[in-house]
């Protein structure tokens, strides 16, 4: 029995020694060395284990249990210390790598699309979704297409409204996107239905805060059997709601264009005051946004269609005008001044 007590004391001593050593260890490598020193093949505990031979057989199992308990205790000591060390290490690293998130970030350059083209795309998207094709025509146009085929013969007073730039002979810079109507109809005839819009550049001899020698328009044309003025109202109502919000209302006033009959001027409820009257709408509650009408029978005929068989409607709007309303810009020239300080706000 005395040997057993001796060995037990020795075990306790080793365990106590290991405990103080483990607690003193500061790095994972030291812990590994301690593990070898106490638990390894040549370790202290292994050496004690060999003393089992000195004991009588009936005491050996008890000694075995004692050794195992000590061994487990040391293992646990090592593991917990290792874990503590790792925790400390992470904390230290985090402390070392700490960022001041309140410092400003490094900026990335950001480009901007031109506001007129943003509106152009928005208009296109609405009409393409309604089944309209997007058509194009040349900017340098024949007088025939720009005027004559659209029912504006020479000496027609309507030419006063559109002072043109002439190029050579009968060639001019188109004053409206309407000639695309004729080109499109002639290219498609006798196909039905025709639903197209033609956005593009137009030119007029005008230059002030509300006129520019170059600006952009979108033309629209629908030709089919049984198209009515009611259909024109329906399409443009939908467009106005898509463009200016669900609360937008439209108002159709009789007007005059040589290539439509009946013709209408279309107003939309003021985007600023909603129709109660403000400075933007001149206290009328309405903003003029586009001209429209039923395609004149002569224009249908010029396009190759039989006006007795089909009817159609057409409309045209200024893209800058809509961009000015949408963004509250009050001077048309800002769009073509290309001041980056202006463009970068869109």
């Amino acid at each position: 029995m005395t040997e057993l007590r001796e060995l037990e004391r020795a075990l306790s001593a080793v365990e106590a020694e290991a405990r103080s050593a483990v607690e003193a260890a500061a790095r994972p490598e030291e812990l590994e060395a301690l593990r070898l020193r106490y638990l390894g093949k040549k370790g202290r505990l292994t050496a004690l284990k060999r003393e089992v031979g000195r004991l009588p057989a009936e005491l050996r199992p008890e000694f075995g249990r004692m050794v195992n308990r000590a061994s487990a205790a040391i293992e646990a000591m090592l593991a917990s210390r290792l874990e503590a060390l790792a925790r400390d290490e992470t904390a230290r690293r985090l402390e070392a790598e700490r960022l001041d998130v309140t410092f400003p970030g490094r900026p990335w350059p950001r480009g901007h699309l031109h506001p007129v083209y943003q509106v152009w795309e928005a208009i296109e998207a609405i009409f393409v979704a309604m089944g309209f094709d997007v058509a194009e025509g040349p900017q340098v146009e024949w007088d025939d297409y720009n005027f004559v085929a659209l029912n504006i013969p020479k000496d027609h007073p309507a030419r006063d409204m559109q002072q043109s730039f002439y190029v050579a002979g009968e060639m001019l810079l188109r004053t409206q996107t309407s000639p695309v109507q004729i080109r499109y109809m002639r290219a498609r005839c006798p196909e039905l239905p025709i639903r197209m819009i033609a956005p593009g550049r137009v030119f007029r001899r005008d230059d002030d805060a509300t006129h520019s020698p170059m600006f952009h328009q979108v033309e629209g044309l629908v030709v089919d059997r049984g198209i009515s003025l009611g259909d024109l109202k329906g399409c443009l109502d939908l467009f106005a709601r898509e463009m200016f919000g669900a609360a937008a209302r439209t108002r159709f006033r009789p007007s005059y264009f040589p290539f439509t009959e009946p013709s209408a001027e279309v107003d939309v409820s003021c985007t600023v005051c909603g129709g109660t009257g403000c400075r933007t709408c001149g206290y009328s509650g309405w903003l003029e946004i586009l001209g429209a009408g039923m395609v004149h029978p002569q224009v249908l005929a010029n396009g190759g269609y039989d006006p007795e068989e089909v009817t159609g409607f057409a409309f045209g709007m200024g893209i800058e005008r809509i961009a000015m309303l949408r963004y509250g810009v009050d001077d048309l020239r800002l769009f073509f001044g290309n001041d980056l300080r202006f463009l970068e706000q869109f």
Binding site: D133, P193, R195, V222, L229, G230, G234, L238
Partner: peptide, 24 residues
């Protein structure tokens, strides 16, 4: 139409064949 009042003409949508809008 103008004596009757453009405002009194009901808004409708064009009927007829459905088409898909294309861009080049």
């Amino acid at each position: 139409a103008r004596l009757y009042g453009y405002g009194r003409i009901a808004s409708t949508m064009p009927r007829g064949q459905l088409t898909r809008g294309h861009r080049r």
